[in-house]
Design a protein around this nucleic acid. Structure first.
Length: 223
DNA sequence: CACCAGGCAAGTA
DNA sequence: TACTTGCATGGT
């Protein structure tokens, strides 16, 4: 057990005590998680909720509906989530993938090995590293750490991470120093997002941030 | 009015 | 490889 392991565990404990469990991913079923991961790309979750509620209300939250709906109509249904034309293509790409690769059953994603599935997801136009890892962790219950803009921002603001670290390096850092447990990775990412929303925006409220006295950890990509 | 949100792909040099 | 730009709505 290195001190880095302990420091990261302390950070998690601190945030969990301060904010409590975040209960991610908020959804009724696996498909709703998949749709949410695409719709929330660079987008406020409130706007995503409206789009998902809209799809539900019209009984369009199904793979066949997403796949068969005219582009123009699907774009209007998800309008509130922004980037409507881009996300229409991305949702259709993902729906087609599940239909063709998994016989239209989102639950079968879990039967594929993590590394293989991640590579397959990344081959879909519109699925990048964060979306792929969110699907792996929150839809497939694979022990994968999700990195996002808040992860960079918080660690940078506290002088913990070099801005030049790549997605894969930052992910590897967390995964090298924490036990690969799905509930831990689930909560940790959600708590980082929560902390970022509350204290790490443009006008930072660092004096109230629960990490204000947490102190530097001096880690690098290959610590 | 400006700024930002649980990214990604495509274009340029 | 390393930047830049487009995508778009709704809340603060």
């Amino acid at each position: 057990m290195s001190s880095t392991n302990q420091r990261l565990q302390q950070m998690f404990d601190l945030l969990l005590t301060r904010f409590g469990a975040q209960h991610w991913w908020p959804a009724e079923n696996t498909l709703e998680i998949l749709v949410g991961t695409v719709l929330t790309q660079n987008t406020n979750w409130q706007n995503v909720e409206k789009a998902i509620a809209n799809l539900k209300r019209k009984n369009l939250l199904s793979l066949t509906a997403l796949h068969d709906l005219a582009d123009e109509q699907l774009a209007q249904e998800i309008r509130s989530a922004g980037y409507l034309n881009v996300k229409t293509r991305r949702l259709k790409n993902l729906a087609r993938f599940i239909l063709e690769r998994f016989q239209g059953d989102p639950e079968r994603l879990q039967d594929t090995g993590t590394g293989t599935l991640r590579a397959e997801l990344l081959s879909i136009k519109g699925i990048g590293p964060e979306t792929a890892d969110s699907i792996l962790l929150y839809a497939c219950a694979k022990p994968v750490f999700v990195v996002d803009a808040y992860t960079y921002r918080i660690l940078q603001r506290h002088g913990l991470a070099d801005e030049a670290l790549t997605y894969d390096e930052l992910q590897a850092f967390f995964m090298d120093h924490l036990p690969h447990e799905v509930p831990l990775f689930n909560e940790f990412h959600a708590l980082i997002v929560k902390t970022g929303k509350e204290f790490c925006r443009k006008q930072p409220l660092c004096e109230q941030c629960p990490l204000r006295d947490w102190g530097p950890i001096n880690f690098t990509a290959k610590d």
